[in-house]
C-alpha cells in the first residue's frame, strides 16, 4: 500500500468513520433505552409482557441483521410506512441492540445481592433512590465487559447499513474500491480504521481500578 493512496483515501474514510461512530452511538443509546423496557417486561408479573419480551428477544437475536434491515427498508413501505432510509437503518440497529441490551441489563441487575437493596431501603432511601444509587451502579460494574462487547458488536454491525445506502465507513470504502480500482487497499484501510475505533472503545472502558 503506497503512501499516496492513503493520503488520498484517508479524508473520505475519516468522514465515513465519523458517520459510523455517530450511527453506532445513536443505536446504542436508543437500544439501551428500549432494552431497559424489554428487560423490565421480561421480569414483569403479567404473563403477556413476559411472553412479548421473550418473543422480541428471540426474533431480533434469531434473524440476521441484514434480513432485518431488508425487512425495514423494503417491506415497511409496502405496509404504508414510508420512513427515510437513515431512520430505518438506525431504528433497526437500535431494535436489534435492544434485544442484546435487555439480556445484559437483566443479567447484570440479577447479580446484585438483594441484601444491598434491602440495606439501602432500611437506611431510608426510596425505591427509586435505592435502584439508581445502589443497584444500578453495582450492576453497571458487573456489566462492564458485556457492555464493551455490545458496543463493539454494534459498531461492526453498523457496517451492514451500507447496504441500504447509508454513507458510512464501509460504504465509503466500497466507493473508494470501485473508483480507484484498488479493493485490496481500500478494504484493508477500512478494516484498520474499524480496529482503531475498537481499541479506542476498549481503552475508554478499561477498568482503571484493576489496571
Amino acid at each position: 500500500m503506497d503512501w499516496a493512496f492513503i493520503q488520498e483515501a484517508l479524508p473520505a474514510l475519516m468522514r465515513g468513520a465519523v458517520a459510523t461512530v455517530a450511527v453506532s452511538l445513536a443505536a446504542i443509546a436508543l437500544g439501551f433505552a428500549v432494552g431497559a423496557a424489554i428487560a423490565g417486561a421480561s421480569t414483569a408479573r403479567a404473563r403477556g409482557l413476559r411472553a412479548f419480551a421473550a418473543l422480541y428477544i428471540s426474533f431480533f437475536r434469531g434473524v440476521p441483521l441484514l434480513v432485518q434491515l431488508l425487512l425495514a427498508y423494503y417491506a415497511l413501505p409496502f405496509l404504508g410506512l414510508d420512513i427515510p432510509a437513515i431512520v430505518a437503518a438506525v431504528g433497526t440497529l437500535a431494535l436489534c441492540c435492544a434485544a442484546y441490551a435487555a439480556e445484559i441489563l437483566r443479567g447484570g441487575l440479577a447479580l446484585v445481592p438483594p441484601g444491598t437493596v434491602e440495606a439501602a431501603r432500611l437506611l431510608g432511601l426510596t425505591r427509586t433512590q435505592a435502584f439508581l444509587r445502589i443497584r444500578l451502579p453495582i450492576a453497571a460494574q458487573a456489566m462492564r465487559p458485556a457492555l464493551v462487547g455490545e458496543a463493539i458488536m454494534i459498531l461492526k454491525a453498523s457496517s451492514l447499513i451500507s447496504l441500504v445506502g447509508i454513507l458510512e465507513l464501509t460504504r465509503t470504502s466500497q466507493a473508494l474500491a470501485s473508483s480507484t480500482f484498488m479493493p485490496l487497499q481500500s478494504y484493508a484501510l477500512c478494516g484498520a480504521i474499524y480496529l482503531v475505533i475498537n481499541f479506542t472503545i476498549m481503552a475508554a472502558f478499561r477498568d482503571r481500578r484493576r489496571a
Binding site: I152, K156, A157, S159, L160, S162, T170, S173, Q174, A177, P183, L184, Y187, A188, C190, G191, Y194, L195, N198
Partner: peptide, 11 residues
C-alpha cells in the same frame, strides 16, 4: 474479530 465480516468478505 474486530473487523466487520462484510469488510472481510469484500477484502
Amino acid at each position: 474479530r474486530g473487523v466487520p465480516f462484510v469488510v472481510q468478505a469484500f477484502l
